[in-house]
Amino acid sequence: MRNLFKGAIAFVAVIFATQLAQAQQKIGHVNLAEVIQATPEFKTAEGQLKTLSDGKTKELQDMYAMYQTKQKEANDKARNRSEANKETVDVELQKLGTELRDIETRINENQRVAQEELNKKEEELISPIHRKVSDALTAVSKEKGFAYVFDISSTNIPYFQGGDDLTPALKTKLGISATAAPATPAKK
């Protein structure tokens, strides 16, 4: 009976210690989007992506201008079509129709390729930044003894109060001024 009593007390002590240990786990939060956008690498990447995007946009605009010119030429020929020049104009309109379809196909293909290139370049430039910030967050979390850290910029956390904000500590770890304003998100 005495051993049973000691076993029960030991069991309760273990449960109590486990509950106490779990109750002491620290929970924090961080705004990763703000940190990532405040890095110098992000600002550089954002500039490179804008330059690439602007170049691709210019190419597509030039192609669209050529399409509009051919379209106007076809419309003018169709308006000036008469019985006397019907055969000649019809041949020219067919040729212009083929050219317009070809230009339209090239525009669509260039749009697709441009988007793929932009996505690839964005992945190439942004992935190392995410990795760097993630590694720094892991280090800061371990240094400060956090068991859980939530990203309030991307996780659906409808309410939180309290907990520790690791955003300033993470910025410090990355060498970013704690007052540095995040870059404005790139417009697509």
Rank of each mutant, 00 (worst) to 15 (best):
R2N: 03
N3P: 11
L4K: 05
F5E: 12
K6F: 11
K6E: 13
G7F: 11
G7K: 14
G7N: 12
I15N: 15
T18K: 04
Q19V: 12
L20R: 13
Q22Y: 12
Q25T: 09
I27F: 09
L32D: 00
A33Y: 02
A33E: 07
A33G: 06
E34M: 02
I36D: 02
Q37L: 10
Q37Y: 14
Q37N: 14
A38V: 01
P40W: 01
P40H: 02
E41F: 00
K43Q: 15
T44D: 03
A45H: 10
E46A: 03
K50G: 03
L52Y: 04
S53C: 00
G55E: 10
G55M: 13
K56W: 06
K56D: 10
T57D: 13
T57A: 14
K58Q: 08
K58P: 03
K58T: 07
Y64D: 15
Q68M: 10
Q68A: 15
K72I: 08
A74K: 07
D76Q: 05
K77F: 15
A78T: 01
A78N: 07
A78Y: 12
A78G: 00
N80P: 12
N80D: 09
S82P: 11
A84C: 10
K86M: 08
V89C: 05
V91H: 03
E92T: 09
K95Q: 15
L96S: 06
L96T: 12
T98W: 07
D102C: 10
I103P: 09
E104C: 05
E104L: 15
E104Y: 12
T105Q: 14
I107V: 12
E109F: 05
Q111K: 12
Q111A: 02
Q111D: 04
R112T: 14
A114G: 11
E116M: 02
E117S: 13
L118F: 07
N119T: 07
K120C: 06
E123N: 14
E124F: 10
S127G: 00
I129K: 01
H130P: 00
R131G: 13
K132N: 04
D135M: 05
L137V: 14
A139K: 11
V140P: 06
V140F: 03
E143P: 08
K144T: 04
G145Y: 06
F146L: 03
Y148G: 03
V149T: 04
V149I: 02
F150V: 10
I152F: 00
S153D: 00
S154W: 12
S154V: 08
S154G: 09
T155K: 11
T155Q: 14
Y159M: 06
G162Y: 08
G162V: 13
G162E: 05
D165Y: 06
P168H: 02
P168D: 06
A169I: 00
L170F: 03
K173Q: 08
K173H: 01
G175F: 05
I176A: 04
I176N: 00
T179Q: 09
T179A: 02
A180M: 01
P182F: 05
P182R: 08
A186F: 11
K187D: 10
